[in-house]
């Protein structure tokens, strides 16, 4: 770790001004991602501006029936919040499927959303990585890529975004409130993340120095929702595939739905093709499979992640089956 200065911010505007003015400065909140990266030599800031004291941990109702979540709200507090549990259970499920109790107690809402994409080569400062060192190459393409992207990847980067919360936030149509040196702007979480393209160094559309101060949720979507995470351990592991799904049924037909994949791409992957295929349809097993296949038509697999295609399809079908009242549930025979 190279030496750095530490400053504790007392107000958001000056924190933003400080970081925006110094290309080597970074915001520090819960630290669970950044301190890890400091130790790995992946992040090397010369100044840390600690935004923990900005009293941004309020969860408040909005006049339109939505909810405003302070950026500093800890993951565990947000997951346990009675309003979240009652009206946005998808959010609670997603948060609780991530990390460990200790990490959720430290990690903040904005910090979770802004954690870096996950890739072992990115984390290995002795390996090439286009995200860490532009132009150095991407060893994951021909290397260990079990966890890597099958959608929206580029030859330069095949990393996936690990945030469960982000997938749920996209499904909930949440919006980030972002403070920058020139004032505040609102960024839909669905548009917050980038695909790697030829510049994998940036995970999001935020400019250096921009700070998420809150996340706003619209009024609840209604219907039934589920966050299903499939991983190599039963707990405390990143998703191989996850599905954030919300479905409103009417008269045996899918009235509306939101489907987002985690673990498949550089950003949470809104499964718009699958949504379109199912909206207004009866959720038969055949229809569910066809919808999943439509979404995965453009999947491009690597040497070690081909299983993600059937896994994503099956997981999506499984979740939708459950949310649409088990239209085609296989029967138990024991």
């Amino acid at each position: 770790m190279k030496p750095f200065a530490y400053r504790r911010a007392t107000d958001a505007r000056s924190a933003v001004a400080t970081v925006a003015a110094d290309p080597d400065a970074a915001f520090l909140a819960g630290g669970t991602n950044l301190v890890d990266h400091l130790k790995l030599g992946v992040a090397c800031p010369s100044l840390l501006v600690d935004v923990s004291d900005l009293a941004a941990d309020l969860v408040e109702h909005l006049p339109d029936g939505g909810l405003r979540i302070g950026a500093g709200t800890r993951n565990s507090d947000l997951a346990a919040h009675p309003v979240v549990r009652a009206h946005y259970p998808l959010l609670s499920e997603a948060l609780l499927s991530g990390a460990s109790g200790q990490l959720r107690n430290a990690a903040t809402t904005a910090g979770n959303l802004l954690q870096r994409t996950r890739c072992g080569y990115f984390r290995d400062a002795t390996a090439p990585c286009n995200k860490r060192e532009p132009g150095s190459g991407c060893p994951a393409v021909a290397g260990h890529n079990r966890h890597h992207a099958i959608l929206g990847a580029s030859p330069d980067c095949v990393a996936t975004h690990p945030s469960d919360l982000a997938a749920a936030m996209v499904a909930l149509d949440a919006t980030a409130v972002v403070l920058g040196p020139d004032g505040e702007r609102r960024v839909p979480i669905g548009g917050l993340y980038r695909l790697p393209g030829d510049d994998p160094t940036r995970d999001t559309v935020l400019a250096h120095g921009e700070l998420i101060t809150a996340v706003e949720l619209p009024a609840p979507f209604g219907g039934r929702a589920r966050y299903r995470k499939v991983r190599d351990r039963a707990s405390f592991a990143f998703a191989l595939v996850s599905v954030a799904a919300a479905v409103r049924m009417h008269d045996g037909v899918v009235e509306d739905l939101r489907l987002v994949f985690g673990g498949l791409a550089h950003r949470p992957w809104r499964a718009a093709h699958a949504e379109d295929a199912l909206r207004g349809s009866a959720p038969t097993e055949v229809a569910l499979r066809a919808a999943a296949d439509a979404e995965l038509l453009d999947a491009r697999t690597l040497s070690g992640n081909g299983f993600k295609v059937p896994l994503a399809r099956n997981t999506l079908v499984s979740v939708l089956r459950e949310l649409t009242d088990g239209a085609a549930e296989p029967e138990d025979d024991a």
Partner: peptide, 13 residues
């Protein structure tokens, strides 16, 4: 009062 991993927390913070 809350459980956290002390390895990912900077002492100064």
């Amino acid at each position: 009062g809350r459980r956290v991993v002390s390895c990912l927390s900077l002492a100064v913070a």
